[in-house]
C-alpha cells in the first residue's frame, strides 16, 4: 500500500506546480474575458437594429470581431499573437505570456455568450423599462445584466472550462500547466501514470468548476 502511494505521489511536487500554473492561466485569462467580453457582448446586443441603442456600424464591427476571433484555431492564435504578447508582457515565453492568447481567445467567446444571454430576455421587460423613461445605460445595468445574470454565470463557467482545455496547449509557448505535464511526461516520456493522474485532476477541476457555476447560477435564478 505504502509502495503504491509512494509510486502515485512521486511526481506530487511536479503536478502541484502544474495545477497552480493551470489555475493561474485560467484564472487570469478568465478575468480578462469577463472584464472585456461582457461589455463586448452587451454593446453587440444593444446596437442591434430594434434594440435599445441601434447602431449598425458598431454592431457590424463587433459582430465581425467576435466571429473572426472565434474562428481562429487556438493553437494558431497562440503563435500568431506572439509579437503582441511580447509588447504587453515583455516576453513571449512563460505562464504569464500564455495568458495573453488565452484571454484573446476567451474574450470573443464570452462576448457571444453574453450576446446570446441578453437576447433571451423577454422584449416586453425591456420595453416596460423604456416606457418608464429609463436611459439605455439604466436598462443595461438594471434590466439586461441582472435578468441575464444566471445565463451569464453559466457562460462564464463554460468559458472557464474551455480555458482549462485551451491551457493544455499553452505548453507550446512554455506556459506550463497540467496539460503540458501530461504531454511532456505522459506522452513524450511514456509515463502513462502521470498522464492518467493529470487527466484525473483535470476532470475533477472541470467538475468542480461546473458544479460551482451551476450552484451560483441557480442562486440568482428566480424565474421559476
Amino acid at each position: 500500500m505504502n509502495q503504491l502511494l509512494n509510486f502515485l505521489f512521486r511526481y506530487n511536487q511536479l503536478i502541484l506546480e502544474g495545477l497552480q500554473e493551470t489555475m493561474y492561466m485560467v484564472g487570469l485569462s478568465l478575468l480578462f474575458a469577463v472584464l472585456l467580453g461582457v461589455p463586448l457582448g452587451v454593446i453587440t446586443t444593444i446596437t442591434r437594429e430594434d434594440n435599445i441603442f441601434p447602431n449598425k456600424a458598431i454592431n457590424n464591427l463587433l459582430n465581425g470581431v467576435i466571429n473572426i476571433g472565434r474562428s481562429i484555431p487556438f493553437i494558431i492564435l497562440l503563435v500568431a499573437v506572439i509579437p503582441f504578447t511580447r509588447m504587453i508582457v515583455g516576453t513571449s515565453i512563460g505562464t504569464t505570456a500564455a495568458v495573453v492568447p488565452l484571454a484573446l481567445a476567451a474574450i470573443p467567446f464570452m462576448g457571444r455568450i453574453v450576446d446570446n444571454a441578453l437576447l433571451e430576455i423577454d422584449q416586453g421587460v425591456i420595453e416596460s423599462a423604456e416606457a418608464m423613461g429609463a436611459t439605455p445605460w439604466q436598462i443595461v445595468y438594471k434590466v439586461l445584466l441582472p435578468e441575464a445574470l444566471p445565463a451569464i454565470i453559466l457562460g462564464i463557467t463554460l468559458t472557464a472550462i474551455s480555458l482549462v482545455s485551451y491551457s493544455a496547449m499553452a505548453g507550446a509557448v512554455g506556459g506550463g500547466g497540467l496539460g503540458d505535464i501530461a504531454i511532456r511526461y505522459g506522452y513524450q516520456r511514456f509515463k502513462l501514470g502521470i498522464m492518467i493522474e493529470t487527466i484525473i485532476i483535470l476532470v475533477v477541476v472541470v467538475q468542480l468548476i461546473q458544479w460551482a457555476g451551476n450552484k451560483l447560477a441557480n442562486s440568482f435564478d428566480h424565474r421559476n
Partner: peptide, 29 residues
C-alpha cells in the same frame, strides 16, 4: 414618460427582483 405609466398584458416584471424591487425600479430610474 415617467409621468405616463403603462401596464401590460404579460406584466413585464423583472424576474430578478422581488415585488419590492420591482416597485422600486421606476423610482430608481
Amino acid at each position: 414618460r415617467q409621468k405616463i405609466a403603462m401596464i401590460f398584458q404579460h406584466f413585464n416584471l423583472l424576474s430578478s427582483r422581488t415585488v419590492r424591487g420591482n416597485v422600486s425600479f421606476p423610482l430608481e430610474i
